[in-house]
Nucleic acid binder design. Structure first.
Lengths: 217, 217
DNA sequence: CGAGGTATTGACAGTGACTCTCTTTTGAGA
DNA sequence: TCTCAAAAGAGAGTCACTGTCAATACCTCG
């Protein structure tokens, strides 16, 4: 658990049909292996918990060697924390008109992206979020990723507002947004039962409202 | 690096004169040891970097056994991340009149607490913050602590506003505040030269303004 | 002041997440 | 089918911990 090596190249995650056709055998096997590892891991985490599951066991369950697991996922945490929506949000955000105030733009960008993330693989997404919520190491690591997201958002926002990327106000806006959204997401998980997308969207909407209102209660 | 065991009991951190008199030899030695470890660690981190400094070496430099290091600091990260100001902020926040809006109350509470933290041991504080800024593992761990702080803030705010602790709006307000303040702090470090307290206060003030303004640029 | 109990320490033997290096296997292209 | 490069496996090594056990140091009470 040291540096943050980038996740291995891997475009589609849980999408077998669409783009699988035109890839060579090699590429297809890579996707298979990565999925085998992830699925094995989720299965074992579910049964015995994250901390109680050594990587060697995941490797065994996935029928690969331990070294291969680390080749695909630089850290154990990355098996859970492979996310593909950061760039998606940035892209969507960039597409919003520059005249919109930041919070409004984010609102639109999010409602687009959330839907896309969810109908990809809803149950695994849910399982992942729950793990992140419960395992300290994952939570910590995910904050790190959020910081990364923060920088992405900042870039997009700065560009929209025609300010430098490291502008203090831009950074503060993104920091606050991310903080608020994270709380909204966790609150969604904490409220056990309601795990539908619309529930999440409602929470996010409320979060953005609070932000626009100047954090008054 | 799993659970978050509480740091060992140790009230004063870098204050030899005042309360040192009435403690037994045992207690005094404990404080000495803990300081020896911390100082040895900071020295080595400065020279060769955090990641490149094994705990065994810190132990050697501090002239204690490796096991003793772990007895004092449950993880290597904790050597850097022992913070005492979280409860301080909460207490100060609680003392503000309930009629004040959240952001205003935080503004006052912060200007109180920041000063107190800083004139305790300014140079070590600075060194610590820089480490946190630069070492991913520390950053991640510190976010975890922030989440804890978040809960403290939420508790104080909820009480003030006479709402339940897990109220969504309360959580969002605290999340956003923490996010904004973290960015302000990092921005302070990034702006290399200006490491005075008043500079930080200025940044914090701007951050709070942005929040009050509803995150507009 | 000295005996006895307890807190603290050190030595040591794990475990588990990585890292590195080296060899073997296996798709891909000629 | 042959060759080359990418990928997988094997194995040794590092380092952050964890748990146990025996030795030592303070403290308290007689």
């Amino acid at each position: 658990m040291r540096s943050m090596a980038p996740a291995p190249t891997e475009s589609a995650t849980t999408v077998p049909p669409a783009p699988a056709a035109k890839l060579g055998l090699r590429e297809r096997k890579k996707i298979q292996t990565s999925q085998a590892i992830r699925h094995a891991a989720y299965r074992l985490f579910e049964e015995q918990g994250y901390d109680a599951t050594p990587v060697d066991q995941i490797a065994e369950e996935a029928e690969v060697s331990p070294s291969t697991v680390f080749r695909y996922f630089p850290t154990k945490e990355d098996i859970v924390l492979t996310d593909e929506y950061d760039p998606m949000i940035e892209e969507t955000l960039r597409a919003r008109p520059a005249s919109e105030p930041p919070v409004a733009a984010l609102r639109e960008a999010l409602s687009d992206s959330l839907a896309r993330v969810f109908d990809k693989d809803a149950t695994e997404t849910w399982q992942r979020i729950r793990l992140i919520r419960e395992v300290p190491a994952l939570r910590a690591r995910m904050s790190e990723q959020s910081a990364e997201t923060c920088r992405l958002l900042a870039r997009a926002l700065a560009e929209r507002a025609d300010r430098p990327v490291d502008d203090l106000e831009v950074r503060i806006v993104t920091g606050a947004m991310l903080g608020a959204l994270t709380e909204a997401m966790f609150s969604w998980i904490d409220s056990g039962g309601s795990k539908t997308l619309t529930d999440l969207e409602r929470l996010v909407a409320r979060a953005l409202n609070v932000l626009e209102r100047g954090l008054t209660l």
